[in-house]
Simulated scan of single mutants.
Amino acid sequence: MASIKQALSKRPWIISLFILALLSLWLFSGYLPSAPSADEPAGQQAEAKPANITPPLAKVIVEQFTPQPVTRTISLYGRTAPDRQATLGAEVSGTVEKLLVRKGQRAKTGQPLLQLAKADRELQLLRAKALLKVRDQEFKAAQSLRKRGLQGEVALSQAEAALIEAKADVRSLQIALDNTVIYAPFDGIVETLHVEQGDYLGVGDPVASVVDLDPLVINADISERHIDKVYLNQPADINLVTGFSTQGELRYRASVASEQTNTYPIEIEIPNPDMTLTAGISADVELILETKPAIKVTPSMLALDEAGNLGIKTLAAQDTVAFHPISLVKVEPDGVWLGGFDSPVNIITVGQGFVRDGDNVEAVQQLGSE
């Protein structure tokens, strides 16, 4: 016995090997089939064998969504501007004799705005007309003498030239006299008066600015990704920062993009018959593209497929999961509108992250859903 203890003390790995052998024998003994007893019926022996266990189906919650007609739009930022604006200048020199309108007043086409002093222009016109009468008589006399051969061709030509010059003088003086009154070029509002009564104006000096606000124009810029979706007379919903809302039409689309921003300028006009809407107001523009059926979902309902594509998971026939990539129609603060559905669809709202396309699931209809 002492010799065995001495041998084990020198070789302790023998003890470890012996313990390992005992553990292995104990573990494998559980897999050995027990021999059926002779007095057990064959049916009971068969029931003693373990049955195949089927894993439970994943449980998901679904909600039915019904497509609704949704208008697809492009959102832009713009500012109101006049349809037309003109800065009027003096075409003749003179002193401002009378202002016929006030700043901010509406004016009709051809309405007098300002009267310059006529000075001696009326007398100069009368003298030019009298001289024209003389030149006309001289020309007629030269024609008569030329027909009788009593005057040469050169004299007739000189008389004709003098007549034409006299007519030009009359016309020039008449225009100068007419230009002492400055008229409105179109219906609009006198936005600015640059002069006061008594001011002296030279030719070209600014007199007044007139703006036409009917229709009112909204200037905006559209990106190069959306320019192919824009066309003339395209309807647009307009919301001014003042709270006023209306609908307009696109009247201009640029053909060349800005080199600085790579955007295209566009113009949308809205009716403003009373010219109560002013220029320079911020505006939200919704260009209307098309109306198509869509369903509204929250971002939490979106899921990824195995390829990393964003979409939604629906419940198909026989409780099978089907993945649909998103077709974005419209984005709102509380959700997104997705197209591609023409009939009611059951969307997995809870548990979509734990199932894949084609999986069979146990579906529970969400309470309160359609």
Results as ranks from 00 to 15, higher is better:
344 P>L: 08
339 G>L: 08
316 A>Q: 08
344 P>N: 11
298 T>H: 09
291 T>L: 06
320 T>A: 11
302 L>I: 10
348 I>D: 02
297 V>Q: 04
338 L>W: 02
313 K>F: 07
338 L>D: 01
351 G>M: 13
310 L>C: 05
340 G>K: 02
352 Q>Y: 05
306 E>Y: 05
318 Q>S: 14
351 G>H: 10
339 G>F: 09
299 P>Q: 13
325 P>S: 11
342 D>L: 14
325 P>F: 10
292 K>R: 13
343 S>V: 13
337 W>Q: 00
314 T>N: 03
344 P>K: 08
313 K>T: 07
278 T>A: 08
300 S>P: 02
341 F>T: 14
324 H>D: 08
292 K>E: 13
279 A>F: 00
298 T>N: 08
318 Q>G: 10
311 G>C: 05
293 P>K: 15
337 W>N: 00
287 L>T: 05
352 Q>A: 14
317 A>S: 13
316 A>V: 04
321 V>N: 04
322 A>D: 07
303 A>S: 15
304 L>R: 12
322 A>Q: 14
342 D>E: 15
303 A>F: 04
344 P>A: 12
301 M>P: 01
343 S>Y: 14
326 I>S: 12
303 A>N: 07
336 V>A: 14
283 A>Y: 01
318 Q>V: 07
276 T>A: 04
351 G>F: 07
348 I>Q: 03
307 A>V: 11
348 I>R: 04
333 P>F: 00
328 L>D: 05
353 G>V: 12
352 Q>E: 13
278 T>V: 09
307 A>S: 14
333 P>Y: 00
290 E>R: 14
326 I>H: 07
301 M>N: 12
307 A>E: 13
329 V>D: 03
317 A>V: 14
349 T>A: 12
301 M>I: 10
305 D>H: 03
310 L>D: 02
340 G>F: 02
312 I>G: 02
312 I>A: 05
326 I>M: 15
282 S>T: 09
276 T>L: 09
352 Q>P: 04
276 T>R: 10
318 Q>R: 12
315 L>R: 09
346 N>S: 15
310 L>S: 10
282 S>P: 01
292 K>Y: 09
342 D>S: 15
310 L>Y: 07
293 P>C: 13
299 P>R: 11
328 L>C: 10
323 F>E: 01
296 K>E: 11
285 V>T: 03
333 P>I: 00
317 A>H: 09
350 V>E: 11
327 S>E: 14
341 F>Y: 15
276 T>Y: 02
303 A>Q: 09
309 N>M: 06
321 V>Y: 03
323 F>M: 03
348 I>H: 03
340 G>Y: 01
295 I>K: 00
294 A>S: 01
292 K>F: 10
327 S>K: 15
342 D>Y: 08
338 L>E: 01
323 F>A: 01
278 T>L: 11
286 E>Y: 10
283 A>E: 00
337 W>H: 07
281 I>D: 03
306 E>I: 12
284 D>W: 00
280 G>Y: 12
312 I>K: 03
324 H>F: 13
339 G>M: 10
344 P>F: 05
290 E>C: 07
313 K>V: 11
328 L>E: 12
334 D>I: 00
286 E>G: 07
335 G>R: 03
287 L>Q: 04
308 G>W: 06
284 D>A: 06
279 A>N: 02
325 P>Y: 11
319 D>F: 08
279 A>I: 02
307 A>R: 13
299 P>V: 09
296 K>I: 02
276 T>V: 06
351 G>E: 08
323 F>S: 01
329 V>Y: 08
